[in-house]
Each structure stands twice: as structure tokens, then as C-alpha cells.
Design a protein around this nucleic acid. Structure first.
Lengths: 221, 221
DNA sequence: TAATTTTTTTAGCTTTGACTAAATTTTATT
DNA sequence: AATAAAATTTAGTCAAAGCTAAAAAAATTA
């Protein structure tokens, strides 16, 4: 069984490798992310390589092995399920949950996380809009993007909402927004990250970042 | 901020001190409980004494200071709230929750535990029938005992039930048991820990240990 | 290409919190 | 009271996981 520290290394290697060439992560980048010295990171990478969780080549970089990736994805699954729990059940605001989930993700119990998944109704996205890997480690990467990431002037269809609270549903109702509706991005305000949209080429609304994070859209052809 | 290891020491000192004279706990007893060597325990006790969390006298024993006790009770509160959550919300059986709660009790976030308390409806007892300290650290020690601990031949009044699941309430209904009813303990079966009771000097029922753990009684005068 | 800068690794140190073996203190027994 | 046994502490070791400073390799620039 791995320590939480080892789990953390794997998780961050995974996250950095998503934006790197060939999944190879540089020692310094990882050190920066973890806020450790590069020397400490080098040490740990050698240990993880001994355990066959990463392949590490001196002065070149590190990438996850199959088993290393499985563990990383499992940690990510735990992290995102806990975040979902904190927001959906305990009514935390989405900006306060990261540090707590950072601790909770290292609790060791498969039964716990599976029951939590069921309790939450097998959510596909966490409160930040990130996909939650399922029990087998597959991450649904549908061709939808979070409305918060939508491009200016483009038109999208509302594909998914990630909040079933009464308040949110009421809000959607109020602005007459339904799954399948056409959304055109008219303006993105840098200051408070609100988004002005036109719904079905008719009414215009200003959408807060909180709301946008719960809405997922696909490109309209 | 204390490490989980330190928190654990304080928790176990507290628990052992409840059954000791003057709250003084012996090094060896603590070592046995923690499954560590006595030498390791001595080491840690010196460190905890430096931090004014315990008073420790060589060859004599250790007891908690005021601040040490506050922390111990807070850890106990977390442990018991998490156990309650696991049983009430995630439908764990009461015998599987200890090891998970042992990990969860060290998550650091007051906001989390207070929201959890609220979410659970401020329960007073955990699934094992142990009292849950409140936010201020006061442990309600009502003059009730768990039915599972009731003495043979004695008569009690049902004072409290610690399970509001539909199934349990339906069960209580079925055996026509209500708060305030008189329960006489007719027989305690060693083999499976079931208890045979007479309700209001009339019907007799065999109560399973699971059920008895959720029922709290006070002595009938 | 040679020199310089940046990145990465090596070497050696620190703390936490375990361990065993030996020494000491306390308790129990003759 | 003297001795034996049990409990506890001291001393020294180890692994995990961090650190800094110095050395080495790679990348960049002159």
C-alpha cells in the first residue's frame, strides 16, 4: 500500500502529463507543482521507479507506467467524488473544497468510495466541472466542454448540467434554459468571469461563473 | 497543528484514563493499546509533555492536561460523527466502520466536521452507542445506558433510539415499542448476544444485538 | 565551438516516529 | 531485607520524506 505522499506524486505526474509531450514530465515542473525542492523530487522519482510505478530516465523526465496511472486515476476519482460530496451534500461552496478533498483523497477504503459514488448517484463531473473517473478507471471524455470554457462568439448546445439542487434548477427554469437549447457566447467579462449569452437567438442573460461551471455544452454544427 | 500520530496518542490516553485511577495511564497499557513498543511510547510522551498536552512523570504514568483533553475529545467527536455518517448515510454495517473512521478522524477541518454534525442532525450517540461530544467538547452523559448493556432481570424505560431509518422505525412499530415503554430483561443469550425482553409486562420479544445497540434505556424506579 | 546559464542529480543533513537491546527503577516474592 | 521479576527508560538504529549546497549534465548564447 502506498503512502499519501507517493499517491500525491502519482496524481500530479498524471495531471502534468496531460499537458506534456508523450506524457513525459520534467523534474522541475513537478517540483514547482508540489512545492518541493527539485532534489526531493529526484529522490522520490527513483523510489517510484523501483516500485515500477513510473519510468524515470535521468535528466530526461518521468512518465507513469500502467500501474502508476491506475493508481493516479483512482486518487483523482476519490478527490473528485469527495469534492462532489462536499458541495452537493454538505453545502460547501466550490471554492473551499479543494484543501479538504486533498486530505480525504488519501483515505484507504475501496468500499467507502464505491458507496460514496452510489450515494451521490454516480456523478460524471465534479463541482469544478472536471470528469470523475469511474470504478474501472475510465474517464468519460464526452465532446462537451464546460460553459465556463466556451469560446467567445461561438454557438453551443446545452448538453449537461451538474447540479440538481432545487435552487439551480429553479434558476434554470427562470431563465428558461433547457437541455438542448442553443447558447451563443456574446461576451466574457474578465473582471468577474461572468458570461453574457443569447438563448435560442432570443433572450440574453448574464451567467455567473458559479452557474457556468455547472453547465456543459457541445459545439453546435 | 498536531500530527495524526500525536492525535492518536491523546485519544487513547483519554480512553484509557476513563477506566483508571485519577486519570493516570501507565506506559505499558498505552503501548499495548497502540500496539507499539513501550520505548516508543516513552519517547512520544516526553514530546507531548514538552507541548504541555500531557503531564508525564517518569516511572509513574501520564495524564492529559486541559488542552490535551480538549484535543482528545475533539478527535473522539470526529471519529464518532464519521462512524454515524458511514452507517446512517452510506449504509455501512456497524462492524465495518471502525477502521475507516480511524482514518477519517484525522482530517483537519473544523468547518467540515461542523457541517457534518448539522447534516446528521446533531446525533448524540454513534452507531456503537457511544456518546458524541458536541462542538464545545461536552459529552452528554445522560443516565441512560445502551439496551445492549442492560442487566438481567432489571426493568428499564425506553429513553432514546439512535436510528431513524424507515426499517428500524417500522420494526419498532411492529413490536409496538415506544419511547417510555417499560422493558424487563428476561434473558441474555451469550451465543449471539440477543436479549429477550418483556414489554410493559406483556408481550415478549427477542431483540437482536443490532437493534439493542440502537436503543437506550434508563432505570425504572 | 566555447562559454555561460539552466536544469537535474548527488551527497550529506534533519525531523518524525518507529524499533531492539541494555540499563534502571519499581514491585513482588522469598 | 535481599533477591527476583516486571515495568519503564535510555541509548543507539532505521526508514520516510523533506532540506541545502555542490557537482554534473543539458541547453543556450556568444
Amino acid at each position: 500500500m502506498l503512502s499519501s505522499v507517493e499517491e500525491n506524486y502519482l496524481k500530479y505526474i498524471f495531471q502534468l502529463s496531460e499537458y506534456s509531450v508523450n506524457g513525459v514530465v520534467k523534474t522541475n515542473d513537478l517540483a514547482y507543482k508540489l512545492e518541493y525542492s527539485a532534489a526531493s523530487v529526484t529522490d522520490m522519482l527513483k523510489k517510484l521507479a523501483d516500485k515500477k510505478l513510473v519510468s524515470y530516465k535521468k535528466y530526461y523526465g518521468v512518465s507513469l507506467t500502467k500501474s502508476g496511472q491506475q493508481i493516479a486515476v483512482h486518487v483523482l476519482r476519490k478527490h473528485r467524488l469527495w469534492e462532489t460530496f462536499l458541495v452537493k451534500k454538505l453545502k460547501f461552496t466550490w471554492d473551499k473544497i479543494h484543501d479538504i478533498a486533498e486530505q480525504l483523497e488519501h483515505i484507504q477504503s475501496d468500499e467507502l468510495i464505491d458507496k460514496m459514488d452510489e450515494y451521490l448517484g454516480y456523478p460524471k463531473f465534479d463541482p469544478h466541472g472536471d470528469p470523475i473517473p469511474n470504478k474501472n478507471g475510465t474517464i468519460s471524455v464526452p465532446n462537451v466542454i464546460c460553459l465556463a470554457d466556451a469560446k467567445l462568439k461561438k454557438t453551443y448546445l446545452l448538453a449537461n448540467v451538474n447540479d440538481d439542487s432545487a435552487a439551480f434548477l429553479k434558476y434554470l427554469n427562470k431563465i428558461q434554459l433547457q437541455l438542448g437549447d442553443k447558447l451563443r457566447i456574446l461576451e466574457k467579462e474578465e473582471f468577474d468571469e461572468t458570461i453574457r449569452i443569447a438563448v435560442n437567438e432570443k433572450q440574453q442573460y448574464v451567467i455567473s461563473r458559479e452557474a457556468a461551471l455547472n453547465m456543459f455544452v457541445k459545439e453546435s454544427k
